[in-house]
Design a protein around this nucleic acid. Sequence first.
DNA 1: TAGTGGTCTAGACCACAGC
DNA 2: CTGTGGTCTAGACCACTAT
Lengths: 258, 258
Amino acid sequence: MLPLRLVDRSSDVPAFRQIAEHLRGAIRAGELAPGDRLPSETELMAHYGVARMTVRQALAELKSEGIAVAEHGRGVFVQSRPPVRRLASDRFARRHRDRGLAAFSAEAEGLGVARVDQLEVGREKPDERLRALLGVDARTKVVARRRRYLLDEEPVELAQSYVPVDIADGTPIEQADSGPGGIYARIEEQGYRLAEFVEEISSRMPTPEERRRLNLSAGEPALVLTRRAIDTDGRVVEVTDTVKAASRYVLEYRFPAE
Amino acid sequence: MLPLRLVDRSSDVPAFRQIAEHLRGAIRAGELAPGDRLPSETELMAHYGVARMTVRQALAELKSEGIAVAEHGRGVFVQSRPPVRRLASDRFARRHRDRGLAAFSAEAEGLGVARVDQLEVGREKPDERLRALLGVDARTKVVARRRRYLLDEEPVELAQSYVPVDIADGTPIEQADSGPGGIYARIEEQGYRLAEFVEEISSRMPTPEERRRLNLSAGEPALVLTRRAIDTDGRVVEVTDTVKAASRYVLEYRFPAE
DNA sequence: TAGTGGTCTAGACCACAGC
DNA sequence: CTGTGGTCTAGACCACTAT
């Protein structure tokens, strides 16, 4: 059991925060390891001599920080992080496409079984942001591919790709299976040679919908990436938006000092 | 006032979640704009016919999502986001250093008044991670520069830079003012020509300490960057860790398709 | 002073997990 | 069945903001 520490009622630090800080310290110090169960609410009430709602407020703070996670009927546990995946910007390199691997398969190689899920393909009218990114007008439709990626049956990423119809027309880009090497391989077969990618990264708390689809626990932020594929003529031939569980990824980019 | 909607007590969706969803919807629909005050807890209790703790739980959900923010004695407000800053990877380009601008000053140009704060400079023993990143052994000390950046007096970034002593020795890198062009300019003056940067990006919830120093509201994630500066001989001559408020930044990287 | 959110109490009933 | 967390009530006192 944890070393018993009392709440200092004379302090102007509220009781629930003192309790949260105590538990945080025990986790940082390794007295509570990832996966360990925290003392139950009943135990914490007895230890600190406070009401249940006070204990729950302390626990809520840890949950919202992503340090702890509750399991109904079982207890509150120290968050155990699955291994982080490091994504280097060479995952879109042509050598992967030439081997018949789409970017996600190249990423997943050696890590587990990659699978796609919840796939929706169709033609859409681009909204204003997408028109600006793709450099098309309101009359041009885009082929949208929305899907979820799973690694060993665990959802890890939501993705939505957009390709102007004049590029995608008549290709497997409009099919459920876009073929070996993914849509970038198909775009190059249409005569557009990819020159460069521009990736924009931001982070925010997920929407309830994203939290559900990605199986995110409370207090877990999302990484949001928008990638543009640009051909040798400078045309943006594709845009992809992806949402990932932030705790599972480290992104790596190299750039020259000049 | 908001259109009155009742809580469906027969639903298995808890009352607090229905209330949260109602408020979320009003915000999404624009009925409540950024900066607007939400109905007070007393008003919400009366509207929905629930106890105060139920209302507070709904509000806590919105706060933890970063959608709303409470101000003691004033009310709960729809989060109004300050403008996002777009950071391109060319902010470390030599042309900025040649103009006497350190990276942060180059970033801030035209955006406001940049200032440094809470600066601590000293020699330290590198921990295991830092030794691996810098490629030095346990006997080599590093010069650490810890500081906070402010833009128009608003804290926007925490940074910690590390340079091996054999590079920093006798240079202004160990002084409070590292001079025009920043520490990268000083490192190059020592004969190390910078060739490449490698930046690693992740996101997580901030620690209480980071939340305090960056003035973050609840439910606001942090962007964490680790940057290595590599010279033409492949030596890592500097490492910087930075923590930023995620909602204020979009990072942009370009990379070739080859 | 009135109204706001912040903290806290002492109960209640419920749903879920595990024996 | 027992113990766990999830939801909810009906109060209380406090600290902060604005008038």
